[in-house]
Design a protein around this nucleic acid. Structure first.
Lengths: 160, 160
DNA sequence: TATTGTTATACTCTATAACTATA
DNA sequence: TATAGTTATAGAGTATAACAATA
């Protein structure tokens, strides 16, 4: 049997296709705010818990520590967060949200919610919820931790 | 109301997360065969219809024509396909599959099917089918054409 | 004048490695 | 010796523009 399904019938193709679409579209929608998807993700993690070290932020978002430097630099430059001395480890920085950062996160999450509503508006609401639930199950089943974006997962040895 | 859902509850995050995962994992699984996901996609399109021009392949996969040159170069180098004269347009090349290309496609599709089976093995089969159906609906609703990977969609003016 | 395929150049993103100051 | 943060350099991938042959 070698009838070779078309790409559109493949779950993997659909995942990759939707992944690229979301990345591209969300980037475009956030552009007027002057931030990108990763900045939004970083703000979200900081909203969840303030004062984390850059290392912890790296692990939460699965981003390399070299890249995190630039991301926190930009948060500081925009007045969204600031580096403070870590209470117990003088090597580390504690990254703290500032009011402007919280305001920006509110705006970017509005953009995100509207984007998702539009994206799923072709489906009955029950189906949209079912889709999210199924996605969560698959994500968990393949070993992706919540809150983690597997952009840089393959380096065999060390990371972050 | 500003309770800010965690990232893991967001459909957009889950799509992006799964998209990266699939891209990365499928790349790793294909590596022993010496090809990448895009090569598999190109073979799939050629299986569907032989002798298309590079331009048509560009449109089918939404890949820039400059990139397609290199991709077809590699197909030729590996003996998977060859450029022939187009029957009616002497500017164009007709890309034809060779037996080795068909064999490679069989192998790479086996890899893909096994990968997908593993990925969805945590779900009841009915749920897996439902997930694929929902993904297709959403993909179509947001304007993604079947067989098309929106990697390079944003350039406002021309493309391909 | 527009289109197909091609090549060259520039730019972005990321990976690797090294360095410092602490632990 | 190992870790947090930082910086610099090199590589992969992609976009832009230009070109020759043909429509």
């Amino acid at each position: 049997m070698t009838t070779s399904k078309p790409l559109f019938a493949h779950a993997a193709f659909l995942f990759a296709q939707m992944g690229f679409y979301v990345e591209e579209r969300f980037t475009a929608l956030l552009a007027p705010l002057g931030i990108g998807p990763r900045q939004h993700g970083l703000l979200s993690v900081l909203i969840g818990r303030d004062g984390q070290t850059q290392q912890q932020l790296c692990e939460a978002l699965d981003i390399h520590r070299n890249v995190m430097v630039g991301m926190v630099d930009e948060l500081e430059k925009r007045g969204f967060a600031e580096r403070r001395r870590h209470p117990t480890d003088r090597r580390a920085h504690a990254v703290h949200l500032l009011p402007a950062g919280r305001e920006m996160h509110i705006k970017s999450e509005e953009v995100l919610n509207k984007f998702e509503a539009d994206m799923l508006s072709g489906l009955p609401t029950a189906d949209g919820a079912a889709l999210v639930a199924l996605l969560q199950q698959v994500s968990q089943h393949v070993g992706l931790r919540p809150e983690i974006h597997p952009a840089l997962d393959q380096p065999p040895g060390s990371r972050c």
